[in-house]
């Protein structure tokens, strides 16, 4: 089994507070991996480290076999959609797609156009005037059309309504299957992850509490949600 992400006693400190510590985890390739944990558990920190937006304080991290974010070629292989799906308020939807085309060597323009049209994103509308859900879809379209090998999504469905949420997660699963894309996404809702993920990592109290394939975790006879909550409780209790 090859890994898209290998972390070894990875830690990140902000001032005196550890957002993530002694994180040792392997994310297998070709999977949709869910990162789950309560607020403040270090999910965003781990994803930002993986996307090369943060530098680790301690430990080693390899994403697709390299240090994250070091070269343009490596940046092209990893897609990242940050929490709250930031977009340029003053730029239009079409501008964002052009931005993606200009800044990414493997940009899939037909995919971007088709997806924006299907989701009803008006090309001439400024991103600042889109609804929260539309903004999220725009940011996700940028991430997908970049055609990365690993797509990292931080709380991607938080701004979507339940219908759009299901549609998005299903679309993500299809895209992952169609392009051999590995996906690492975070959520604090286990039900979201259960729908699309085949591997789950539970993060609580800035440490990894549980990691494993969904099928194996379910094999105990308990539901995934129960297993995950039990792992979180164990972390919180310690």
């Amino acid at each position: 089994m090859t890994a898209v992400l290998e972390a070894h006693v990875l830690g990140r400190r902000y001032g005196t507070r550890w957002a993530l510590r002694e994180c040792t985890v392997v994310v297998p390739a070709g999977r949709v991996v869910g990162l789950v944990g309560p607020n403040g558990a270090g999910k965003t920190t781990l994803l930002k480290l993986a996307a090369g937006q943060l530098a680790p304080t301690t430990g080693d991290l390899a994403v697709l076999g390299e240090r994250p974010g070091a070269t343009p070629a490596h940046l092209a292989r990893v897609g990242f959609v940050a929490q709250d799906t930031p977009v340029y308020a003053a730029l239009t939807v079409a501008d964002h797609l052009r931005l993606g085309a200009r800044l990414n060597p493997r940009w899939d323009a037909p995919l971007a156009r088709e997806r924006a049209a299907r989701l009803g994103l008006p090309p001439a509308r400024r991103a600042g005037r889109l609804s929260g859900g539309q903004r999220a879809q725009l940011a996700l379209t940028l991430g997908l059309a970049k055609r990365p090998e690993l797509l990292i999504l931080d709380e991607p469905v938080a701004a979507l309504d339940p219908l759009a949420r299901r549609e998005f997660l299903e679309g993500l699963g299809e895209a992952a299957a169609a392009h051999g894309l590995s996906v690492l996404l975070s959520s604090h809702l286990v039900s979201d992850l259960e729908r699309v993920c085949d591997h789950v990592i539970v993060l609580a109290g800035s440490r990894v509490r549980l990691a494993g394939d969904v099928d194996r975790l379910r094999a105990s006879g308990r539901g995934l949600e129960d297993v995950v909550l039990a792992a979180m409780d164990a972390g919180a209790g310690r």
Binding site: G52, Q53, G69, L75, A76, A82, P86, R106, K146
Partner: peptide, 17 residues
């Protein structure tokens, strides 16, 4: 402030460039 650095820095362009 707007968080858009996370958008542009996750395109295939280094921050330095």
């Amino acid at each position: 402030e707007a968080g858009t650095h996370l958008l542009v820095w996750s395109q295939s362009v280094t921050r330095r460039r």
